[in-house]
C-alpha cells in the first residue's frame, strides 16, 4: 500500500525557477486521478516529486510511510512508476520486449514472475505484436505505449502517466482507457496528466486542477467542469458537450454525451 501525502510542498529548480508552490494533497491507494492545467503550471514537476525524481525544496512528500527525502529515487520508484512525457527520454533498448523486461529483470525476480509481468504488460498495452520491433521504428504515439508497458511491468503500487493522450488517435485513446480501467481493477493508483478534457471527463473519478504553480481545486469531473471560476483560473474549457448543455440552459452538470441526450430529450 502506498498512499501519497504531499505536505506544504514547494519546488525550485537549480536555476532559481519556482515551479510548484505550497501544495497540499493526498492520493489514496487505488484512486484514479487526472491532473489538468496549462503548460508550465507545475504538473510534471509535482508528479516527479511523487516518485522521487524531484525532491521537494520545502515540505515533505510521503509514499506510504516513506518520506522521499530519506530514500533514493531508485528505492521510491519500486512503489511509484513514472511514464515520461517524451517516450524518447525513457527508451534505451533495441526491442520492445527488452525494453519492457528491463525493469522486472532489474528486480531479480524468479523468471516465471518476470515473464508473467512482461507478458501482462505487453498484452494489455497491445504491444505484443511489436515485441521484436525496435521501439524507434514505431510512430511516436505507439512508442508511448512501449514506455507505458515498461512501467506496468514494474508492477508498482502507483503509476504515473505524463500526457499519454498527446497525439493519440481514437484507437489510442480507447486503448488507454482500457489500460486505466484494468489497472484500477487491480487496485493500482493511477495518476494521469492530460490536456484532453473530453478524455478526463470520461475516465476519471477525481480531477486535480493546477495553475501557475498552485493547486486551484480538486473534485469530481462533474464538479470541476462546471466550476467556471476554477476553469478560468487554469485557462481550461468545458468538454464540448458541456458547453452545448450550458448554452441550452440544461441543468445537472452534464459531462457525457449519453447524459446530455437524456437531459435534452426530457427538457
Amino acid at each position: 500500500m502506498a498512499d501519497i501525502v504531499i505536505k506544504n510542498v514547494s519546488f525550485t529548480y537549480p536555476n532559481g525557477h519556482l515551479a510548484v508552490e505550497n501544495i497540499n494533497l493526498e492520493i489514496k491507494q487505488g484512486e484514479n486521478v487526472a491532473i489538468v492545467g496549462q503548460n508550465g503550471a507545475g504538473k510534471t514537476t509535482l508528479v516527479k516529486m511523487m516518485n522521487g525524481l524531484n525532491k521537494p525544496t520545502l515540505g515533505d512528500v510521503f509514499v506510504g510511510d516513506k518520506n522521499t527525502r530519506d530514500y533514493t529515487t531508485a528505492q521510491i520508484s519500486r512503489s511509484v512508476g513514472y511514464v515520461f512525457q517524451n517516450p524518447d527520454d525513457q527508451i534505451f533498448h533495441s526491442t520492445v520486449e527488452e525494453e519492457v523486461r528491463f525493469g522486472p529483470a532489474y528486480f531479480k525476480l524468479p523468471l516465471e514472475e518476470e515473464n508473467r509481468r512482461v507478458e501482462y504488460a505487453l498484452e494489455i498495452t497491445g504491444m505484443d505484436e511489436f515485441r521484436n520491433t525496435n521501439p524507434f521504428d514505431l510512430p511516436l504515439s505507439i512508442r508511448k505505449f512501449v514506455t507505458i508497458a515498461a512501467v506496468i511491468a514494474m508492477d508498482t503500487d502507483v503509476m504515473i502517466f505524463d500526457e499519454p493522450t498527446a497525439g493519440q488517435d481514437i484507437d489510442g485513446n480507447r486503448r488507454l482507457a482500457h489500460i486505466l480501467e484494468a489497472l484500477h481493477e487491480k487496485g493500482k493508483t493511477v495518476i494521469t496528466i492530460s490536456h484532453d478534457m473530453e478524455f478526463v471527463a470520461s475516465y476519471f473519478d477525481r480531477v486535480i486542477v493546477m495553475a501557475t504553480k498552485h493547486l486551484v481545486r480538486e473534485g469530481t469531473p462533474k464538479e470541476i467542469f462546471w466550476d467556471f471560476d476554477s476553469l478560468e483560473k487554469a485557462m481550461l474549457k468545458q468538454p464540448y458537450v458541456s458547453r452545448v448543455c450550458k448554452a441550452l440552459g440544461i441543468e445537472g452538470n452534464v459531462i457525457s454525451v449519453d447524459e446530455a441526450v437524456d437531459r435534452i430529450l426530457n427538457k
Binding site: V241, V257, D258, I264
Partner: peptide, 23 residues
C-alpha cells in the same frame, strides 16, 4: 467514419444520438 478509425466531434455524436431517439 467512427468505424474507420476517425474521431468525430463530440457534438456530432450528440446530434446523431438525439436524432436516433426521435428529436
Amino acid at each position: 467514419l467512427l468505424k474507420k478509425g476517425v474521431n468525430l466531434p463530440q457534438v456530432a455524436v450528440l446530434c446523431s444520438k438525439l436524432k436516433e431517439k426521435g428529436l
